[in-house]
Amino acid sequence: MSIDVDEVTKIAKLACLSVNEDDVQSYATNLSNILDLVAQMDEVDTSGVTPMSHPFDAVQRLREDVVTDFDRREDFQAIAPKTEDGLYLVPKVIE
């Protein structure tokens, strides 16, 4: 499996990563190599095997519907890059 430069650019866009022009080729090579490694899976017959997303067949535990977390805006926004009037600010979002 080989990933070309265009594909790297596409993936980077999807992942919201700005990749330097200089690095694109090396990412393409590395990603291709990783996919070659991963391709070893193809040699195994997995028909009839159920996918495993967790080590256990455990069941989701449910939380009682109680409010126990209260306002900590001041703490949270003390570490925020940019806020005003209690809002997080980002460059203008155009709809």
């Binding site: 939380r63 519907d65 109680v66 409010v67 126990t68 977390d69 209260f70 306002d71 900590r72 805006r73 949270f76 926004q77 009037d85 209690g86 809002l87 997080y88």
Partner: peptide, 22 residues
């Protein structure tokens, strides 16, 4: 009363970002 995955309140109309948990 509380959010689907956290214990913060869902009440409408509070001051911005005062009903948010970690």
């Amino acid at each position: 009363k509380s959010k689907i995955f956290s214990a913060a309140s869902t009440a409408y109309g509070a001051e911005p970002n005062t009903q948010t948990s970690v």
